[in-house]
């Protein structure tokens, strides 16, 4: 009697074993692909994840492999493909955590490729979902990064503040915001006194040269009109004075913008190379 039961159990054990063995093979394949990913061989890693998907007939690892393929494409800078695979991962997610993770990856990819509107739209949808009530901090964190990449440091600071009033990124954003030049101010003072905006942004030589040209052309124009040489006055006024006056305002604006980009880039460089928190 026992003999029969033993043999039947043996059969069940065999079935079980076969299932376990097959899972084990796939698990090994996943590890192999992960190793390739970790060593930076993203193209080959994608091949192996695809192989895993192909032979994983019961779709046990479909979420992991889609997610990892997305990460590979993201690391190679192929953002469109990355978004495609993160979306597939989101479709194949089995838990809310997986759904959230893949959605956050889509958002991070959008941040990196500076498609701000799309990133914000996705963040809104996460915000409005009742499943992710406990994830507000993460959502706000990536909102902050979205605004950093959109060069809007003031709004970014607001969202980091919602996480923690002492958040290091909040401090950084405020610092960047405060050290920026005012483009409007530079333009306005250059309208009033040519060259002033350039001097305000630290371009002294350019400022003084602008001032010199405007004074010279102004003198020339007024002198011509005063001496009743209307044609000369008109020519000097439109072709020289107006040209340099307009150029002076344009320069003031451009210099202020350039300075601001330099300030932003310095902070962005710090974030990319030295900041230790999670980055997009």
């Amino acid at each position: 009697m026992l003999n029969f039961d033993y043999k039947i159990f043996f059969i069940f054990f065999l079935i079980l074993f076969s299932k376990l063995l097959s899972q084990n093979q796939l698990k090994l394949q996943l590890d192999y692909a992960n190793n390739l990913y970790n060593s930076g061989q993203y193209f080959d890693a994608i091949t192996e994840y695809k192989r895993l998907q192909f032979f994983d007939s019961s779709k046990i690892f479909i979420y992991q492999s889609d997610y990892q393929i997305g990460l590979c494409y993201k690391a190679g800078g192929h953002f469109d493909n990355a978004v495609k695979y993160f979306s597939l991962a989101e479709m194949n997610s089995k838990t809310y955590q997986q759904k959230f993770d893949s959605k956050i990856q889509i958002i991070r990819t959008n941040i990196l490729r500076r498609t701000t509107d799309r990133a914000l739209q996705l963040l809104d949808s996460l915000d409005n979902s009742s499943y992710f009530e406990t994830k507000k901090d993460t959502i706000n964190y990536w909102r902050g990064w979205t605004y950093i990449f959109a060069d809007d440091w003031k709004t970014a600071a607001l969202f980091f503040d919602k996480i923690d009033a002492q958040h290091p990124l909040k401090k950084l954003c405020i610092k960047v915001e405060n050290s920026k030049y005012s483009v409007t101010f530079a333009k306005v003072i250059s309208y009033i006194l040519p060259g002033a905006g350039q001097i305000y942004t630290g371009h002294l030589l350019s400022g003084f040269l602008s001032l010199g040209w405007n004074l010279l052309a102004g003198y020339w124009t007024i002198n011509s009109f005063a001496a009743n040489r209307i044609f000369d006055g008109f020519t000097a006024g439109t072709l020289v004075w107006l040209r340099f006056y307009r150029g002076n305002v344009q320069n003031a604006e451009n210099f202020a913008r350039e300075r601001n980009i330099d300030i932003s880039n310095k902070a962005l460089h710090y974030l990319q190379t030295q900041y230790e928190g999670i980055k997009p």
Binding site: K7, F10, L14, S18, L26, F55, D56
Partner: peptide, 28 residues
């Protein structure tokens, strides 16, 4: 019992076949 043993042998054979035909089980 004899019958059963033959049956079991037969099933064992079937399972091995299944194990090896299942792509997941053989070498990828």
């Amino acid at each position: 019992v004899d019958c059963l043993q033959v049956r079991i042998l037969f099933f064992f054979f079937l399972f091995t076949v299944e194990i090896f035909t299942q792509p997941g089980n053989s070498n990828l």
